[in-house]
């Protein structure tokens, strides 16, 4: 009898530890994450707080809550999925972004702050909810479209719209407002000016590359086992 109790206790303890480990991502019961990392290629890290210096390695399935930050390294990629099914982000190499979400009754407003890098997006049609991208120079409101947002080293921003329409409000200088529609690209300078024109061939290619999530793998056989390296192939 005693051994049974002991066995049960050990089992429960192991279960508890296991659940704690798998919830290494520490989820509070009533706190629904804003997004999930769906796929990770190479060097992708995340942190729970921008004040923290600790960047943890990300893996598929990591939940991202309000304020969580994601960073990709050289030749790396992260696929981020919003938990309300409203959209998917393809975070390209050398990018840093923060995810924000606020739920009020049936409304779930999302905002993604892109500090640097390039993010491809696909957003389903939003009814009354907000889906925004914020960069150091602009706030872009999305209703339902695909495209990419690129933030350059000087914080100027490029936003390409594949279809539908995106509303733009510059944050600096002249604080111009404009919109960009399907097949066009907006360039927002640090002076707050917005320049919209038909997307160039290069911008179109960048968009296509921003939609790409497929990777290739190199497998090296050694006498100690196989070594697998996953990478994103160069766009043609």
């Amino acid at each position: 009898m005693k051994s049974k109790i002991k066995y049960s206790f050990i089992t429960m303890l192991i279960s508890f530890v296991m659940i704690s480990i798998l919830a290494g991502f520490i989820i509070e019961p009533d706190d629904t994450p804003v997004a999930l990392i769906k796929k990770v290629v190479k060097d992708v890290t995340y942190r729970l707080d921008s004040d923290s210096d600790v960047w943890e390695d990300a893996k598929a399935g990591i939940p991202l809550k309000d304020g969580h930050e994601v960073k990709t390294g050289f030749k790396s990629l992260a696929l981020v999925l919003f938990t309300d099914g409203s959209g998917v982000l393809r975070v390209r190499e050398n990018s840093v972004l923060q995810i924000y979400g606020e739920k009020e009754e049936n409304r779930f407003d999302k905002n993604t702050y892109i500090d640097k890098g390039e993010v491809g997006f696909e957003v389903t049609k939003q009814e009354d909810e907000e889906f925004k991208f914020t960069t150091p120079t602009v706030v872009a409101s999305i209703r339902g479209t695909a495209g990419y947002v690129g933030v350059n080293d000087d914080s100027s921003t490029t936003i390409m719209c594949s279809h539908g329409m995106i509303e733009l409000n510059a944050l600096l200088g002249q604080r111009q407002s404009s919109s960009v529609s399907g097949g066009s690209t907006a360039r927002i300078g640090t002076d707050g000016g917005i320049n919209v024109s038909v997307s160039s061939g290069d911008e179109q290619k960048t968009f296509e590359a921003s939609q790409q999530t497929e990777t290739k793998k190199i497998r090296i056989r050694t006498n100690k086992g196989d070594l697998e390296i996953e990478y994103i192939p160069e766009s043609e």
Binding site: I19, L22, A23, I27, E28, P29, D30, D31, T32, P33, L36, G61, P63, T83
Partner: peptide
Amino acid sequence: AMFAGELIILY
């Protein structure tokens, strides 16, 4: 599975 608010995840 883990239940996190309105999200359920199974690894």
